[in-house]
Design a protein around this nucleic acid. Structure first.
Lengths: 209, 209
DNA sequence: GTCTATAATGTGATAGAC
DNA sequence: GTCTATCACATTATAGAC
């Protein structure tokens, strides 16, 4: 479905997505969303009542995209190393397609730390009680088997998330310092990271025999 | 020097630091800075003319703190592993004392990617032409000597920065998902990371003989 | 230097015609 | 559903008394 086939409601949501994610809640003007959607400003309120309501729609979609969905990977019979490889490749791929999502989600969450657990308890619950438990158990098993070194599973998970997400959050400064503003070189750097991060992590935890 | 001994100009700058860094440029109200400094709102303009000028003072200080100063470490005669260990311990320590600086700097830079290189060329130049060159050469030497595996020095640097900085940028979500909002457990987690990250990196690149 | 009062503008939101 | 006109309020900034 291309832009012309979409109704006004969808046009607005697409425009709001773009502007909110680039500029954040505080930095976004309703007028700018209207301009982006090429519609009248009043229509924003007709369809979504208020800026806050419109923002919530955008934010909820964004955080669901941002939180890794590992169910598919965990369901099948794979080794820990395979799981790590597939996860990193897929998650960096997701971020390549949505490069502004990490900064948007993390910045907005940083301003509302208290409401976090209440509002998104359903999303976090699934991760906490299923995906994390599964991964931690798998790590402990591999440690017991002597396949990987002793490491706190939480630290390992945060390490993997850090290596995947940080370059997108820090893109402007990395592109300036490392690549003299060349966006082409930065893209190659990110593409290379799929293998680099995977190797880096596995190399670090694997027991050499 | 405690707060009472400071003059108005310093009181304002301290207050502006706190509010801007927590809420960002767009999210900050001049009134809130005045309240924080316990002075009249007009005095903000008397001393700093405009919100933008005041913001620039804060931002310049913040980015200088944020950019790692590795000169001390590089000056002395240390091995690559020692340099990595010291850097990680000191840089995470810096972030523990200034936990909001990474999100503040990276978010504001994300909104102004174009002005970046011009405005801070003096800071970036020093890093690009001295610290990075030094580190890259050292990495290449160690590769040649067979002490570490083959790795792109840029990827290694970004890996180290990611592992140090990301947990501070993602604090709210990590604290919710991993530690049920317990700020005490999160602090311990960060403290433990000084050794964890160091081990993780060195373990990954060190050639076992 | 510090205060009060107020100007000047920007912005979210609504009323009402079509 | 969509538009124009406008309200109501928040916010930066300044003028002027003390």
């Amino acid at each position: 479905m291309n832009q012309k086939d979409k109704n006004t409601e969808e046009l607005i949501l697409d425009a709001a997505n773009k502007v909110f994610i680039e500029k954040g809640l505080d930095g976004t003007r309703m007028q700018e969303i209207a301009d982006e959607a090429k519609i009248n400003k009043s229509l924003l309120h007709y369809y979504y009542r208020s800026k806050d309501k419109l923002f919530c729609e955008v934010f909820n979609k964004a955080i669901q995209k941002f939180l890794p969905n590992t169910v598919k990977i965990f369901d099948s019979q794979k080794t820990l190393f395979e799981i790590i490889e597939i996860f990193i490749e897929e998650y960096i791929g997701l971020l390549q397609r949505n490069p502004f999502i990490p900064m948007f989600v993390l910045h907005e969450l940083g301003k509302r730390p208290k409401k976090l657990s209440e509002t998104f308890s359903h999303l976090f619950g699934e991760i906490k009680n299923n995906q994390l438990v599964f991964f931690r158990n798998m790590v402990r098993q591999e440690i017991a088997k002597g396949e990987i070194i002793e490491i706190d599973p939480n630290q390992l998970i945060v390490n993997i998330m850090s290596l995947c997400i940080f370059p997108f959050v820090a893109k402007p400064i990395l592109q300036t310092i490392f690549f003299d503003e060349s966006s082409k070189e930065f893209k190659k750097f990110i593409q290379d990271r799929k293998k680099e991060v995977s190797d880096f992590v596995i190399n670090s935890i694997k027991v050499k025999k």
